[in-house]
Design a binder for these strands. Structure first.
Length: 288
DNA sequence: ATGGTTGCGCTGCAA
């Protein structure tokens, strides 16, 4: 079973990239983030082309901002939009989480709040949101994957230059502690497990040629519970999807599990491109 | 060059 997660930064704008990518990589389960469409708009735009590719679909969107979705060719049962105890922001619930059971695994597609700046109320919201999510995951099924844009680089190895991020969100100790607490439920960061010490990023700012210089961060994760982590046969970031015309600013993460319910392990995949040299002294764009 | 991009949607905000 192949599971992928991708922050598409508007699924409407990304349709010309998403649909060919689905045909090329043929994931069985896809977690999408930043769909930026209401459920009605998602259905009218995407239900038919996705059904053509064999996917059942569940979305949880609000239009303009946020929005998550799940696509599955191995079943999509017990869909839950949001989660019990999910904090509001500014008095409103945001569309940042959807989960379902696909091929026997509880799959979460998450768009963790950005946090904006460490002194903001959005940062407080981010930490509370992660704590509430942790309670749900810890109480959930033993076979689970927590996928998505977590807006946290787990370690300094997950950013191109730690100094460039000093004082910014995504790298602060409380954020990393919140992620570690979530993972205390027994989750493994399966891409890092597969590529220890490698330069592996999933996000590059659109500005200033950051992708061209490979100045990025790894903030899109697949966190697998122990039983699922033991089935991982490949785990990589599909950097090709960040190249070319009209890309998202995030690349997909792809994880292959063996012993899917139908017995099909799916096609094998090439490894990521060779790691690049680090870069120092590059100034970070003001916003991410 | 205190810069640079994209998306949403129409003015500036979010990322």
């Amino acid at each position: 079973m192949r599971i992928a997660t991708w922050n598409v930064n508007s699924v409407k704008q990304r349709m010309p990239r998403l649909l060919p990518w689905l045909e090329q990589r043929r994931p069985d389960v896809v977690c999408l983030q930043e769909t930026k469409l209401t459920d009605e708009a998602f259905t009218s735009l995407l239900a038919a082309p996705l059904a053509e590719l064999g996917y059942e679909v569940a979305s949880h969107g609000q239009g303009q901002w946020n929005g998550v979705a799940l696509l599955s060719r191995v079943g999509l049962a017990d869909v839950e939009r949001g989660f019990a105890g999910q904090p509001d922001y500014d008095g409103r619930a945001e569309a940042r989480a959807i989960s379902a059971t696909c091929g026997g695994v509880r799959v979460h597609s998450l768009y963790v709040p950005n946090g904006r700046t460490p002194d903001s109320d959005h940062y407080v919201y981010k930490l509370a949101w992660l704590a509430a999510l942790g309670d749900i995951v810890a109480a959930g099924p033993a076979d689970a994957v927590v996928c998505g844009d977590v807006n946290i680089a787990p370690t300094d190895a997950d950013v191109f230059d730690p100094a460039a991020y000093a004082g910014h969100t995504h790298v602060t100790a409380p954020e990393r502690a919140a992620l570690a607490a979530l993972m205390d439920a027994g989750l493994r960061d399966v891409v890092r497990d597969r590529w220890p010490g490698e330069r592996v990023f999933s996000y590059w700012d659109y500005r200033a040629g950051m992708f061209h210089q490979d100045l990025g961060m790894r903030i899109d994760l697949v966190l697998a519970s122990g039983p699922v982590a033991g089935r991982v046969r490949a785990a990589w970031i599909d950097r090709e999807a960040r190249k070319g015309k009209l890309p998202s600013d995030h690349a997909p993460v792809i994880v292959d599990l063996d012993v899917a319910p139908d017995g099909d392990i799916g096609p094998m995949v090439p490894p990521p491109s060779a790691p690049r040299r680090g870069a120092r002294g590059v100034r970070l764009p003001q916003a991410r």
